[in-house]
Design a protein around this nucleic acid. Structure first.
Lengths: 187, 187
DNA sequence: CCCTGATGCAAGTGCTCACTTGCATATATC
DNA sequence: GATATATGCAAGTGAGCACTTGCATCAGGG
């Protein structure tokens, strides 16, 4: 035997199955099988399905934090940071995060795990406001700018998963931002 | 008694509960209660949960078809048609369609009901291509234009439902298209 | 006024699934 | 090599839920 199955292996299996099936349909049985361990062992080691998800998320998606506390003079650079962050978030580990976000609304269990880290949206708003005040961006509600930037990225992610044929590449953050800025620089 | 409970009333109740809870968590018990009928009656009249959803969708979302078969000279008008369609689709009846779309990927039962009507995406692509050939739009993959247009609309719809505090109004199709065109008219 | 068919009610069936448990075996530690 | 701890296995528990059924009631049509 190649040694004991590590926690990381189980996390991978869990996130993989959840990305494919969604949290509710992902049975603990299937996760255990994918990880190559027994279902009983899974519960002995991780207590509950929800706790397994919590640990898997923690272990995979922290350190993902944006470095946006000191916005600079370069609008494009800051926006690219934002879009890249969300793009990576939606694409990593088979798109689990997108899957979980979709389920969070209906499953308190999932929602409890996905508490958005460190007031991220507020920080994004602050950056956008900063550049609007500098006169580098058309003035409109920051949240709208956020939608316009991240919406296409998210939509593309969703489309890639829903439509089997559409094997589109993930969105290129630089291109998204460039296109956006073309329409939103004050004239 | 105010007369027998009509099919339409039951459809409303079903779509309402499903919009709030999602299809899988929406129990037939809850739907029957919301409609003011007995659960047994629900099954006697509609056979199965899936069939109830099918009928409800049919009764509510046909006649929603786009009038896009003959794109004209006015880019803005055609794009507004597209965005309005999707905006209405996401907003009507408590956002059921968005909810169902999210679940369709994981639930074959839901997916079976939501077959996209009449090759809609292909028709949208065709309209976009038409205007690109006319030189009225920057040339890029039509699907990308679709993402850029509908992404923000969808994102806003999702945000309004996930984030209780963000009581943003639904997207205004004319504004979305205007912003988009500002950045995508050939220079 | 009677008859038919739809309804409410309450109990029940069968399935799935998260989670448990008892036991035998393997693995690690000393 | 003895002992403690983790694992596999197989069976089981209990809850939720779609769907059923038998019976009493009620409304409308002839």
């Amino acid at each position: 035997m190649a040694g004991r199955v590590t926690d990381e292996t189980v996390f991978d299996a869990a996130l993989g199955v959840i990305a494919e099936q969604g949290y509710e349909r992902a049975t603990t049985r299937a996760i255990a099988d994918a990880a190559g361990i027994n279902e009983a062992t899974l519960f002995r080691r991780f207590t509950s399905k929800q706790n397994l998800l919590r640990q898997a998320v923690r272990s995979n998606f922290t350190g993902f934090a944006l470095d946006l506390d000191a916005p600079g003079d370069d609008v494009a650079a800051d926006l690219i940071t934002i879009v890249s962050y969300y793009s990576r978030l939606y694409e990593t580990r088979g798109g689990v995060v997108l899957t979980l976000m979709r389920e969070a609304k209906f499953s308190p269990e999932v929602a409890a795990v996905l508490t958005e880290p460190e007031r991220l949206l507020e920080r994004v708003d602050a950056v956008i406001l900063h550049h609007q005040r500098r006169g580098a961006l058309v003035v409109e509600p920051p949240r709208h700018t956020f939608f316009a930037l991240v919406g296409p990225v998210m939509m593309r992610s969703i489309a890639r998963r829903v439509d089997q044929r559409a094997t589109q590449a993930p969105a290129d953050p630089e291109a998204v931002v460039r296109r956006f800025l073309d329409g939103h620089r004050p004239g």
